[in-house]
Simulated assay, not measured.
Amino acid sequence: MRAKDAVGRYGERLAERYLAAQGLEVLDRNWRGDTGEVDLVARQGRTLVVVEVKTRRGTGYGHPAEAVTPAKLRRLRRLAGQWLHEHPGSWAEVRIDVVAVVLPRSGAAQVEHLVGVS
């Protein structure tokens, strides 16, 4: 596994623990659809939450959330629709969240949860 991939997987594990601590139930991890992958799919009450996790070792190239482009959000909306089609349920709402994880050289990871970005 490449170092970049390992950092990403570690960030996803941190994000999952963070979301669980906030009361969300993770339903799916690294779910693959026709046009890409969803890092996490979760439930918060009757809301389906599609989560994009971005992890960086620092902010030298900008905040991790800045890497979630309008094109990425469009793809996530399409993937959310596909996930819903494959997993029927009665959802009151669907939203897309971003969890940004920064892993500094020393100290604890910084986790920021951006709710309802799309």
Rank of each mutant, 00 (worst) to 15 (best):
E86F: 07
L27T: 02
R46A: 13
E12M: 12
P88Y: 08
L48V: 09
H63P: 12
R17D: 15
V51F: 14
G45C: 05
A71Y: 07
R57Q: 11
L79W: 07
D5V: 09
R74S: 10
H63T: 07
G36C: 04
V7Q: 13
A92V: 10
Q22G: 06
R29Y: 10
L19V: 11
V50K: 05
W91V: 01
W83F: 06
R78H: 14
A15N: 06
T47M: 06
R9P: 00
A42F: 03
L19E: 11
A100Q: 03
G89P: 09
H113Q: 03
L48K: 05
M1I: 07
G36W: 01
G36L: 03
P104D: 04
D5R: 14
W31L: 00
G36Y: 04
R105L: 15
E25K: 13
D34R: 12
T69F: 00
W31Q: 02
R29I: 02
P104T: 06
M1A: 09
V7P: 06
W31F: 01
E25T: 15
L73T: 02
T35I: 13
R105Q: 12
R56G: 12
E86H: 15
A65Q: 08
M1H: 13
L48A: 08
R74Y: 07
G116E: 01
V68G: 04
A92P: 06
P88I: 06
A42D: 14
Y10F: 13
R57K: 11
G107I: 00
A20Y: 05
R32K: 08
H113A: 05
W83H: 07
L24T: 00
T55E: 04
A67K: 15
K4C: 06
H113N: 07
M1D: 11
R56Q: 07
G116D: 02
G116I: 10
V68Q: 06
G116H: 05
P70E: 09
E93S: 14
Q82H: 11
H63E: 12
A3F: 07
G60K: 13
T47I: 02
G8L: 03
K54S: 02
R43K: 14
V68S: 00
K72P: 01
R9W: 07
G89Q: 14
L48T: 05
V102M: 02
G60H: 10
R105S: 13
G107D: 00
W83M: 03
L24K: 04
E93F: 00
H87N: 09
R105F: 08
R2N: 14
R78L: 15
G62H: 07
L48P: 07
L73G: 08
E93M: 02
E12P: 04
L76F: 12
P64Y: 03
L14T: 07
G23L: 00
P104Q: 08
L14H: 10
V117Q: 08
L27K: 14
V117P: 02
R43C: 04
G116F: 14
R56Y: 06
G89L: 03
R13P: 01
L40T: 03
R75F: 02
V101P: 00
